[in-house]
């Protein structure tokens, strides 16, 4: 499969008056043409920062990409000029944010907001841009687009607004769409519709999607591959089947156990106790140690090596070491 985006060892830090927060600590992943990659994790794990760093949209200062690269079409997005980056934003890589209620400018009509992106990137005349925008509104399922073109955002419901936001992101036919918690702010029924819309659009345009979410239900519905983030690192990644049926990292297992499932009746939900570590001074070892049921002496002392289980499935955990297996079975 063709690689469209390659993130290598990305580090992002924020300087606050309390010190440096290392929000993303060496994240690497690839994105392939036409696939959906889900990045999951609890809030504060760095998943949003990762996605915004790809677009170079982290507020800077205080945030900055400390090291690493984001390769897209032979360019390192972490290093190109702001002007070059502007040409890529919206045209090659688009982004959708969590809250559709605040993502649209309240004082401009949705038509103007849709058209401005097109005009910015290919300089089409207004009429042509408008035609394109109307097609897009139609595609995302806004009834009567011609009429609603002149409406203001507050005249739409939350679900409709999110459709408009999606239309806005797709209007220049980008190759990559980054969706940051696109359904979190929506009702469950609307969520399902929006997810269907993602699948439909992907089928029609073959766009690659990076889906940022904490909701494993959403992931199960649309993701091809999944990366699990914890405390600024990807601790486990694999395809959907591997992550859901053969999770290796205790954190991934914990995440799965804390989601209600209809197929496993009678089993209790098991919450993950505790909270993530402080990223002002992240631990030397595995950041999950303090919350892990299988924690060993080594976990505090050194960060685990990456273990590749299949071509796609890899995990950072000391339990993969043979000696740990011995210990575990001995403990039993």
């Amino acid at each position: 499969m063709e690689k469209v985006l390659e993130v290598k060892d990305l580090h992002v830090t924020f300087s606050t008056y309390g010190g440096e927060v290392k929000a993303v600590r060496g994240v690497s992943f690839d994105l392939h043409k036409g696939e959906t990659l889900a990045i999951v994790g609890e809030s504060g794990c760095g998943k949003s920062v990762t996605s915004q760093s790809i677009m170079r949209l982290i507020p800077s200062p205080p945030g900055r990409i400390a090291s690493g690269s984001v390769l897209y079409k032979g360019k390192d997005l972490a290093k190109i000029s702001e002007k070059e980056m502007r040409k890529i934003r919206g045209a090659d890589i688009s982004m959708i944010f969590q809250d559709p209620m605040t993502a649209l400018n309240p004082t401009l009509t949705i038509g103007k907001q849709l058209v401005e992106g097109i005009i910015q990137h290919d300089g089409s005349p207004k009429e042509k841009a408008k035609k394109r925008a109307l097609e897009m509104l139609n595609l995302v399922g806004i009834p009567d687009p011609e009429m609603r073109f002149k409406n203001y955002p507050h005249e739409f419901s939350g679900g409709m607004r999110q459709r408009i936001v999606i239309a806005m992101a797709l209007v220049c036919e980008p190759e990559i769409l980054i969706a940051d918690e696109p359904t979190t702010a929506l009702d469950v029924t609307i969520q399902a519709q929006i997810l269907d819309l993602f699948k439909e659009i992907q089928r029609k345009t073959n766009v690659s999607i990076i889906l940022i979410t904490h909701d494993l239900g959403v992931v199960a519905q649309v993701a091809d591959r999944i990366a699990v983030m914890y405390a600024g690192k990807i601790v486990e990644a694999g395809n959907r089947r591997e992550i859901f049926y053969k999770p290796q990292h205790p954190y991934t297992k914990g995440l799965l156990q804390s989601v209600p499932r209809l197929d496993l009746e009678g089993e209790d939900l098991v919450p993950i106790m505790g909270s993530p570590p402080d990223l002002f001074s992240p631990p030397v070892g595995c950041p999950f140690t303090a919350r892990c049921d299988f924690a060993m002496e080594v976990c505090d002392k050194a960060y685990p090596f990456k273990t590749h289980l299949t071509k796609e499935h890899h995990v950072d955990c000391w339990l993969q070491d043979k000696r740990a297996q011995k210990m575990l079975s001995a403990a039993k």
């Binding site: 677009m55 934003r89 919206g90 688009s94 982004m95 944010f97 992106g117 806005m168």
Partner: peptide
């Protein structure tokens, strides 16, 4: 505001 981030994400100057 979020909509300013949206505008930046569109690649506006």
């Amino acid at each position: 505001q979020d909509y300013i981030r949206t505008a930046r994400a569109k690649g506006l100057s």
